[in-house]
């Protein structure tokens, strides 16, 4: 009882607010209910449903759901060679068409309505004649073949260069070549990478990869120049896939042959095209001086990336048969066969 009730004199501002039994009961029920629920969330053992308890701190660590890449290879017609070489001829475009002819043209690889990703080498902002990047004419011709002959739905051109991506695509001529031919450029930004799982890889079993252009893609084609490399002796078709890696990929130079052979496990492309139009004979992979480059006249296509690289190492870089170690390692990982004798077809002009 309040003072006012006791003495009978009521303060003018006093407003009595009795609590009914129902209100009291509902208050108690609310407290018990919410308290119980909160207590359950915080205290129930970790295995129980809806429990938020994290006794060791490991539960709250971010869980990365890695994606996986498909196998983009297609079956080629019986008797088709594993590597084709087209030399001479009036233009790079014509060489490409000749190199594809033994397989039955690009239609043998790409079906109508496919989404195709073309991965050129756009690693530096060099002019194309310096041989450090893929030739724009080859890319134009390839994209036209894909869109017109093979009736692909979309052609995506992507690379994750070490240097500034917009500058590299611009100064190497790849951006203009792609856009004029009707392709679409994908540049790497912070949101374009996803954690990739490559089962069986030694170094990159889980690694962030430039995944945006590979989403929902049906076929993947690599277009690589033929280059010397100061560390692994050659940078050709297999090393080209390095450009899809994200994260701190500079750590892999401590075991460069292992990573290049792992790349052949990570990516099983539909087709690899080697462009021997401007061969970077020395000072690779950056080049930069016209005297480093030897003009060539070869375009190679291959479904066996190991044999393709081996043939190009011997005949285009003219280094003989002491192949880089990553080729044997890739053969050991069963992504190709090193001995190319009998599997190379040189297409007549």
């Amino acid at each position: 009882m309040s003072e006012g009730e006791k003495t009978g004199k009521q303060h003018p501002d006093y407003v009595k607010a009795p609590m009914s039994r129902r209100r009291f009961a509902s208050r108690v029920a609310a407290v018990l209910g919410l308290g119980g629920a909160a207590g359950y969330l915080a205290g129930a053992p970790a295995g129980w449903p809806l429990s938020l308890r994290d006794p060791t701190g490991r539960r709250s660590e971010p869980v990365k759901k890695p994606v996986q890449l498909g196998d983009y290879r297609v079956a080629v017609r019986a008797g088709a060679p594993d590597v084709t070489v087209a030399r001479g001829g009036p233009s790079i475009a014509q060489r490409l068409r000749r190199a594809l002819a033994p397989y039955g043209g690009i239609e043998a690889f790409v079906s109508p309505g496919d989404i195709v990703m073309v991965k050129p080498n756009v690693a530096f902002d060099r002019a194309p004649i310096l041989g450090a990047t893929s030739q724009p004419e080859l890319l134009t011709e390839l994209i036209k073949l894909l869109l017109i002959d093979a009736r692909a739905q979309e052609v995506r051109v992507a690379d994750n260069p070490i240097e500034s991506p917009p500058d590299c695509f611009e100064k190497s001529g790849i951006r203009r070549a792609t856009e004029e031919a009707g392709g679409r450029i994908y540049l790497p930004d912070s949101t374009a990478f996803k954690m990739l799982n490559t089962p069986g890889a030694t170094l990159i079993e889980y690694w962030p990869v430039f995944h945006r252009p590979l989403t929902n893609v049906d076929k993947v084609i690599g277009v690589a120049p033929v280059k010397d490399h100061n560390l692994c002796h050659a940078s050709m078709g297999m090393k080209n896939w390095y450009g899809l890696l994200g994260g701190r990929r500079n750590q892999f130079h401590q075991d460069i042959h292992e990573i290049v052979s792992d790349l052949s496990l990570m990516m099983r492309p539909t087709l690899t095209i080697l462009d021997g139009s401007q061969i970077l004979m020395k000072n690779g992979p950056t080049g930069g001086d016209p005297s480093d480059v030897k003009p060539g006249d070869a375009v190679l296509c291959g479904v066996d990336p190991v044999a393709l690289d081996a043939w190009a190492f011997e005949h285009l870089l003219e280094r003989g048969r002491r192949y880089p170690r990553y080729l044997e390692m890739a053969q050991g990982k069963r992504t190709g066969i090193l001995d190319w004798t009998g599997r190379v077809e040189e297409v007549a002009s």
Binding site: A127, I129, L130, K171, K282, N283, D289, P290, S291
Partner: peptide
């Protein structure tokens, strides 16, 4: 905003 090929050839360093 670019360097011409002729300029690169003229400034090319042959001896390594």
């Amino acid at each position: 905003r670019d360097v011409s090929y002729e300029a690169l050839v003229a400034g090319s360093i042959e001896e390594l």
